[in-house]
Amino acid sequence: MKALDQVREVMRRDRVFNFMAQGQHPVIKGKVDVSKDIILYLESVSVSFDGFKAINDLDLYINDGELRCIIGPNGAGKTTMMDIITGKTRPDEGSVYFGQTMDLTKMSEYEIASAGIGRKFQKPTIFPEHTVFENLELAMEADKRVWITLFARLTPAQNDRIHEVLQTIMLEQHAELKARHLSHGQKQWLEIGMLLMQNPRVLLVDEPIAGMTHQETEKTAELLTGLAGEHSVVVVEHDMEFVRSIAKTVTVLHEGHVLAEGSMDEVQNNPKVIEVYLGE
């Protein structure tokens, strides 16, 4: 019976993506198999909290190198979706794959992170008692095992890289300041900087411009579009203007399900989307 089920499973998946039948998935950074040009797969994913379905049969594919914007009203499940990708929340159903080979539902948070998925939280989370410099140093791409970190020393190249990012996030003068003293917007930047230090394949960015000035917003837009191509970027944002300025493809989430997908104009003229956003 079990074997038969397994075969059936394999068959079903095979119809869509033949890679999914594979068993073990070695976690090697940079070895993400993107031969199908898709880097993230979410397939019929559902999650419920105490009976409330936060994510409901969600299908989402992110192309390699793409910049994707995800919008949706409050409580649509955008943050929960990121939780699922990064391993914070385990889906009740469905499969989540990174590239062709890595089953994210079977990996722990740190494995997912070291495999190359970086994340910025909705509420900026940085290490308050560390300096800005140290925050970046901690985030830096490196061997993060215990004994190795005990004896780790900063190489000149790494030092340079940190200063580079410090410049990008405009916190060069504050390098030695404890991060808790930063303003809300600066914290946002610092978190983005930490994301950059990780040098991930995929960046999940949850509401990056909350608390930023107009110039800073523009700068963020520039930064994110610049990252796309080499990295894949998924941005969740409520600010439509910002979304319009960066996005080629926009996905609208509603009640844990994809409501519409397409260019900003297409989406904005979609009657279902209009209803969700305007009609009650």
Binding site: K88, E109, Y110, A113, G118, F121, F127, V146, Q198
Partner: peptide, 11 residues
Amino acid sequence: AEDRARFIGYK
């Protein structure tokens, strides 16, 4: 910030 540490790849 335990979660933060986890999501930048520390076990």
